[in-house]
Every structure is written in structure tokens, then in C-alpha cells.
Design a protein around this nucleic acid. Structure first.
Lengths: 336, 336
DNA sequence: CTGTTAGCGCGTTCAA
DNA sequence: TTGAACGCGCTAACAG
């Protein structure tokens, strides 16, 4: 292990001088010495010890990113954006995965705090669970008390910098757009009963229908992932429904629902129209192309990191608008 | 920022005692003191400073993972496995993304070295570029000289612990399986000319055909990603071909090719059969279901981390067999 | 069982 | 411009 002292000795200069040339300190160093130090560092293969620097400077170069599931394209896109942003700030990302367990989420914040991460970004919907929410808030408080910055992608529930997708409004807009295609009776694959993102989207959709004087949708709950969509769709078909259009509250669920319908011989969009939410990249090659509400996922990740790193007091909330994208999975119904 | 000293003072014990109770030291501490320290730590919201621990212990708790693109399900699956493994060892993962730039790959190894990562895992095919390979090897050498462990997922080119998928053999097996379905004339969407993984798969496929006395496939090069597959497929169709089956050297390429064929009115598998490689999870809802060679991606990530962390001298190479999975994208041809 | 103390590698005053 | 020295928070001898 080559230390700065080794370099200094090899170059015949003091530790302080070596430090100054090897770390963009604002201090000036004579050209000759500078060259000697740099050549010594290169020759010895010196790599500054970031942990020691963190200790000495009192500030690390790591950003913590907490997501629920890396294999979900929604989170992968957000994490990708976050990594790009961190890179811009010359920081590294330590990535933690909760597997949708709030307990792990809290533990990860503690770990990232121990890591002395400069900022922590938490992506993923909160559960409507007061106890967990309080505990998470407490953990975030001790983190912030020690100077950490926090950004959330999701609901503005924690009094931190927040990137908040307008789930309610997006789903509402979607309802209007689908009604514009002639649909009148809907079903919603609504995800878990306690997940805010799912709730907001389902309720926004219902609100949109109500505004138009249309009947409330049939609601089927289930998991928030691909299999949840599949299961909920099967359940819906089993129940029987007169809906002409199904709204799954996210794209991976919609994809699962599409498969379920295909397996049950229900043609999409011929016999049933289908829409999702997010416009995750994985949708790109789905057939029929999926109607959805587009969210700029990578940009949301980037924005959250930038927000947290530039945070200086007042928590800021950035609302993100979703854009309805009508594609082949929704059929235009003849006027009846 | 609450330090161990604060806790010690608050509990009325020495620094050493506080350290002993708060960090699974093997040393014994009296029950009374232990309780006092723990209560003080909780009350003050103490979180051990991992960077200071790293410095004092001479060993960090971070594992570095270098991948090319987080939004590619292949890498997402590997990273997911790596994170799970790290978690098992009570370590965190700092994740770096190269965007397929070898220059960034080298820079990331340096960064991870600075981070004093205990191990670095590099996933993704090497390029047949001697200069870059040498420079990467050099950077890895300085990392290893300071005690770092390295594991590679891909070709065994660097003299490190390696998880090596049997690309050649898998593609060869695939060729046999496809021939078994009656196909005789093939095209290969072969990816970039200089990428080992792509080369191995293309050459393995050709070798398999040769063994059977079948004609060499038409080869179209292109990008290793979804758009590369799309473009290459368009190119193939434009050229005109009498092949009845196309092998794309990975799944995302195959997915792109599938879309291209659909856009050009070429029915799969009716007019053209199609196969990929990896069995990435994103294939799950593709229609027709895709024939491919399954690789246990998450397990490869886990294995690589375990290998690196348990490494004790001799580099070990774990070969990973791929399993041919025949699905609907390949048609059985009548015997002619 | 508990406390004292010397570093771990580096940044940064403060003097020269 | 350069160098000496202290401290960042913690671990690990060593001593009691």
C-alpha cells in the first residue's frame, strides 16, 4: 500500500507539499517540485486513500442510492440517472437494494450514514404504514443531524428535497385520454392497498372518470410487480367484467397483465384495451405497443442527486409531470 | 456528528470500552457497562464512522462493481446478484458504470482503489484491444499490489478470479439444437468485431454448424445492444438472405431484431426463426417467446463476489455452462 | 474486565 | 513557496 508519505519521501519533499500537488489544493507549488512529486506518484502507483481524505476533510465523495429492486427497469433507469449525476460531481454511488422491505430501507440509511455519504437518495413509494414511516423519518433525522442531505423520489412525506411525480394528475389525464378513445367502462389493476404510488394512480384515474360522469372502475389489488399484474389480470378475467379497458398502475404490471390476457385468449386491444404507467424502456419492444404515462425516469434520478447535493436549507419539491402516450394497446371504440 | 468519544463520555466509560461494545469485538465487556454504552449510543444517535474504521482496521467494507450499462437487464441481473452477495458478507456495493468505454473502466478501477474497496468485480466483455487490455491489467496490478481482490465476469484474460460463461460451447449447442429443428441455413447478428463475448458466441455457433457439415452462416456485425440488433436485422433483410433462422448473439439484440422483422412484415417464426443468448429476464414477456441459451446471471454476480472475497492466492476460474432453451421463436422445419 | 495510548493516511493550520 | 505538527474517528496493542 503506497501512502502519500512514501511519495513524499521518494520525491524528497514534505508530506504537505506532496498533498498539495496531488490534490487540487488551491495552494501553489513550484513547478520543479510539482513534477518530481507527480513522477514519484506515478512511479510508485500512488492512489490517494479516499477514506483517509474523508476523515481529514470531514466530507466524503459518496452518494447513497436506495432503490427497491435493481432488476425492475423503473429503478434501473432512476439509478442510472443518479449515477450519471454523481459522476458529474466526481462522486461515487453506493447502491442499496431493499427488495421492498421497509425494514431494509431503514437499515440502509443507517449504513449509508456510517459510510458518511454526502447525500442519500431514496427511490420508491412509501407504504401507508405510520410506524415504518416514523422510524424511517427518525433514521433520516439522525443522518441529517450529522450533515447528510436527503432526497426522495416519490411522495413528499418526509420533509426533504423531493422529486415528486404527479401520479394523480397523470392517471387522471390518462383516464380522459382513454375516454376520448370511446371507452366507458374500466378496470384498474391497482397494486397493493397500502402503497402511495399505487393509491395515487388508482385514485387519480377514478377521479378522472368521475369528472366525466363515467362509472367508477372495477378495482383489483395485487403486487406492484410483473407477477402482481399477471395475477390481478387473471383474477379480473375470472371474475368476469364488462370493462373495455384495463389500467395497470405501472408498466411492469401492465406487461404481466398483457401476458395473462394472451394466455387466456383475450386479444389486446381487440377484446380488451390496456394501459400502464411510467413508460419504462422495457416496454419498447412489447407488442402491441403499450399506452402509458411517460415519466422521465433517468432525469428524475439525476435531478434528485443534484437537488440533494446542492441542498442548502429549505427542502425543495420538484413536481414531475407525466405525459400520456397513446399507443396500439388501446383501441378506439366506435361511438355507440 | 456524534463520535464514539461522545458516547464514551456520556456513558462514563473509556473510548476503548465503548468501541468494544459497539463493534463486535471479541473482547468481553461487563453487562452493566455494556448496557450503559448501548443506551448512550442509542440516545445520542451514534452511527459508527465506517471511513474511520476502515482507516483504523486497514480494511474497508465496500465491494466495487463495474458494469457497462445498468439499464441493460444482463448487467442489472449480475449487479443484483453481486449486491446480494455483498450483503451476505455485510458489505456495501459501490457501483460504477462504464457506458462501454474501456477508458472509464480503467478510471473506475482507480477510483475503487482509492475507495479502498476490498474487492472489485468487473462484468462485461473485454475488447480485443491490446493497448486497453494492458492498461487495464496495469491498473488492476496496482490495485492488487495494495491488497485488493479482483474478479472478472467474462473472458479469463487477466489472470484473476474469473467467472467465465462458456459462450463458445453454448452457441455451439444452440447450433446443434437449431439444426435439430430442421434448419440448415443460418444468419448471425454477430455484434461488434472486437468484442470477445460476441466473437466467442459467433464462432461457437459457426463451429457447431461446421461439425454438422452445414454451410457457414451469413454474418452481420453491429452494436451489442438492442439497437444494434435492430440495425443488423434490417441490414440482413435488405441484403436478402435464404437463411431460415437468425442467431443474435445476445437477447437484447434478438429483441431488437424481432422488432425489426415485425416492422418489415417478416413473421417470426413463420417466415424466420430467431434465437438469442443469455435468457435475460426481460425476455419473459416477449412474443413469440424467445429461444435462447440461459445463463444464471444473478448467480454469476454472486459467485464472482464470493470468489473475490474468499480469494487466497491462486486465481480460480469458474466456468458457467449455458443451457439451450427452445421456445416459440424457432419453428420446426419439415424434413426436406 | 477496563483504561491509556499509539497510530491508520491525509488535510490544514501555523511558522519559517 | 515549503515544512512541521496536530487532528479527523476509530482500532488494537499494551498495561493495569
Amino acid at each position: 500500500m503506497v501512502t502519500l508519505e512514501d511519495v513524499a519521501r521518494h520525491a524528497g519533499v514534505s508530506l504537505a507539499t506532496a498533498s498539495r500537488v496531488l490534490n487540487g489544493s488551491s495552494r501553489q507549488v513550484g513547478a520543479a517540485m510539482r513534477a518530481r512529486v507527480e513522477s514519484s506518484a506515478a512511479k510508485l502507483g500512488y492512489r490517494a486513500d479516499a477514506t483517509a481524505q474523508t476523515l481529514a476533510r470531514g466530507a466524503s465523495n459518496v452518494v447513497g442510492v436506495v432503490i427497491q429492486d435493481l432488476t425492475d427497469p423503473y429503478f434501473a433507469a432512476i439509478a442510472d440517472g443518479a449515477i450519471r449525476a454523481a459522476d458529474t460531481h466526481n462522486m461515487v454511488v453506493t447502491l442499496g437494494t431493499t427488495y421492498r422491505d421497509p425494514e431494509r430501507e431503514i437499515a440502509l440509511v443507517a449504513t449509508l450514514n456510517a459510510q458518511r455519504a454526502r447525500a442519500v437518495l431514496i427511490a420508491g413509494s412509501r407504504l401507508a404504514d405510520e410506524v415504518m414511516l416514523r422510524r424511517l423519518r427518525a433514521e433520516l433525522d439522525v443522518y441529517r443531524a450529522s450533515g447528510g442531505r436527503v432526497a426522495i423520489i416519490g411522495q413528499d412525506l418526509l420533509g426533504t428535497d423531493t422529486v415528486a411525480p404527479l401520479n394523480h394528475e397523470g392517471a387522471r389525464d390518462l383516464a380522459h385520454a382513454l375516454a376520448g378513445r370511446g371507452h366507458r367502462r374500466f378496470a384498474v389493476l391497482a397494486g397493493p392497498p397500502g402503497l402511495y404510488t399505487a393509491l395515487d394512480r388508482a385514485s387519480g384515474f377514478a377521479a378522472g372518470l368521475a369528472e366525466l360522469g363515467l362509472p367508477a372502475p372495477v378495482v383489483v389489488h395485487g403486487g406492484f410487480d410483473r407477477d402482481g399484474g399477471h395475477t390481478a389480470a387473471v383474477e379480473l378475467l375470472r371474475m368476469g367484467t364488462d370493462a373495455t379497458c384495463v389500467f395497470a398502475v405501472n408498466d411492469v404490471m401492465a406487461t404481466g397483465a398483457l401476458s395473462a390476457m394472451r394466455e387466456h385468449g383475450v386479444d389486446v386491444p381487440g377484446a380488451m384495451s390496456l394501459a400502464g404507467f411510467d413508460d419504462a424502456a422495457s416496454l419498447r419492444d412489447v407488442v402491441p405497443s403499450m399506452t402509458t404515462v411517460r415519466l422521465p425516469l433517468a432525469r428524475m434520478g439525476t435531478l434528485a442527486v443534484d437537488l440533494a447535493l446542492s441542498s442548502d436549507g429549505q427542502p425543495r419539491v420538484e413536481h414531475i409531470e407525466g405525459e400520456v402516450v397513446l399507443r396500439d394497446s388501446v383501441r378506439t371504440l366506435p361511438v355507440s
